[in-house]
Design a protein around this nucleic acid. Structure first.
Lengths: 244, 244
DNA sequence: TTGCATAGTGTATAATTAACACATAAGCTG
DNA sequence: CAGCTTATGTGTTAATTATACACTATGCAA
């Protein structure tokens, strides 16, 4: 295995959508006293790891996701780099770093990526016991500067979603318009008008209705749609929609 | 002097506006044969430097600007981090790094910042001989991956300018509406309608007319305005203008 | 005083956004 | 199987915002 670069890491904010709210994948971090086995603290962190020698940043992010969640071929976007000298210097982080990673630098610069997945495809059970989904509205205690990283990631996701149709990455392949709308509402954090929303979507030629309806629901079944990246690539015009 | 971190640097894309076009500040890089004094190559690079031990990324960017251009208290924004393993491995860069910085790592991750200045305040003469303004439309041969960095910086600047009134950072304190318009045109890369532009600006309460006119121009003198960051902060509403 | 160059101004039309309510279909329950 | 529950699906009007477009005003220079 290639050696790590001790002072450069990537952290991945994995966003997932469960048809109700926007979630973030977090891993439990627990420090125990080696003698008494007493828990010193418990909190949560993002999925992250050091970049390896000879590895590109993007590659590192892809590797982290694969290793820590089993995910591959998913949407990934670099959004900000965090390099304050004090970002690993609160009390718990010092304890943790000393015990677990004594060989690692004190000042690690971390490149932030966010990724988007359909919550249902990630079952944080088997191999990754201590990994769980948390609503972005109700996060647990976080290690390092990861609260700040998540906040920034969410902001960047909102900006991005308002410009580009990346929301589909958070949905299963087939979805209904209500699901799409509730995704937008979850990410943007506000309610949208159903009829106006559907009018907008109707203009997106890359959201394609299938000859298929929802099944097994206790109400009028909805039409099922897919997103065609292909059609999108071909029909998008380089509109940056500069507002002046 | 504090030691450098050998594998982390910042690169600053300094944008300047000269009332006509958008420019970038670049520094000549010339490699000479130490014996014959023959020029092996000449090209240009951004202002960059390694981060120092114990230094935040932002601080490093501020320091680089101060040391390389004399600028201080200016607008700075981190926009992307460049860390491909091959970013310093084209032929000229290898030659250069071997001769000039033999002790530095081959794989340097560079955090990109852009800054905005009024071209007139930077006179790249005295201390910084080899530093010159170049139109973003007509760049010289660039070292490392700096062409890519500039392209990304320009894209991010456009996105940012379309959301927030940061253009004023590129103008002198007092400016006319025509100057403001031509700044927007230069950054966004397209012509705007004068009357519609002025209607827009009229809605920005933080663009304040002074009781003062342009002087010494061979035509009707224009009204002079200032930008009030203060009024902006107080009147901006958190509008992310999500288009759905 | 005339010419030149840029400043400054308003209106009509088109496009986009925002607000809003009722009929429909499937499963469930009794 | 009747009726209840729940989410789907659909159109119009008003308000706002964006676009297109042409002439007069002012100061300086020749």
């Amino acid at each position: 295995m290639r050696p790590i670069i001790p002072n450069i890491s990537v952290d991945c904010v994995v966003f997932g959508f469960d048809m109700k709210k926007l979630n973030v994948l977090l891993t439990e971090r627990q420090l125990k006293d080696p003698k008494t086995d007493e828990i010193i603290f418990t909190d949560y962190t993002l999925q992250g790891h050091h970049v390896l020698e000879g590895e590109n940043l993007n590659e590192a992010a892809i590797r982290v996701l694969r290793d820590k969640t089993g995910l591959h071929d998913i949407f990934l976007e670099q959004f900000h780099t965090f390099g304050n000298t004090d970002r690993m210097l609160n009390e718990r982080d010092i304890l943790w770093t000393e015990k677990i990673y004594p060989m690692v630098a004190h000042h690690v610069v971390s490149v932030g990526y966010y990724s988007l997945v359909d919550s249902a495809t990630v079952k944080p059970d088997q191999a990754h016991q201590q990994t769980k989904w948390f609503s972005v509205e109700d996060l647990p205690e976080l290690g390092f500067d990861h609260a700040e990283i998540i906040e920034k990631a969410l902001y960047c996701l909102r900006v991005k979603l308002s410009r580009e149709p990346i929301g589909f990455e958070l949905l299963p392949e087939k979805f209904t318009l209500s699901q799409l709308q509730s995704l937008y509402e979850a990410v943007l954090g506000k309610k949208l008008d159903r009829r106006n929303f559907r009018k907008k979507v109707a203009l997106m030629k890359y959201v394609i209705p299938l000859d298929e309806k929802q099944r097994g629901v206790a109400h009028k079944p909805a039409q099922v749609f897919i997103f065609s990246k292909d059609v999108y690539q071909r029909t998008k015009k380089e509109k940056l929609d500069f507002s002046i």
